[in-house]
């Protein structure tokens, strides 16, 4: 099995990539909200409520706060799966 330094080295770039994808996902959402608000101001927006997607985004944000816990009480992966099962 890999040593702690080997774990960090082996999966660092992959983890960096996945975090960038999450960041881009949130930026993409913000950009869409801004576009929609601008369109609404001229009467061309979707007019859709943001409640449903806000619930999912709240789960994503909650998951990220759970990841930064240095000593979680249970495995992070299991905790996240249980969190997402609540949606």
């Amino acid at each position: 099995m890999l040593t702690p330094p080997q774990i960090v080295e082996t999966y660092f770039l992959e983890s960096r990539y996945m975090l960038l994808e999450i960041a881009a996902y949130l930026d993409r959402y913000d950009a869409a909200v801004n576009r929609d608000q601008a369109d609404n101001s001229i009467g061309n927006g979707s007019g859709q409520a943001t409640g449903a997607e806000d619930k999912k985004l709240a789960l994503i944000r909650r998951a990220m706060t759970m990841l930064v816990e240095p000593k979680p009480q249970q495995e992070r992966t299991r905790a996240l799966l249980e969190l997402f099962a609540t949606q």
């Binding site: 770039l13 992959e14 990539y17 960038l20 994808e21 881009a24 930026d27 993409r28 950009a31």
Partner: peptide
């Protein structure tokens, strides 16, 4: 690139 550069989704962003 699969990991180290831009991803297809980010490029479209």
């Amino acid at each position: 690139y699969p990991i180290t550069k831009c991803s297809p989704k980010r490029a479209v962003d």
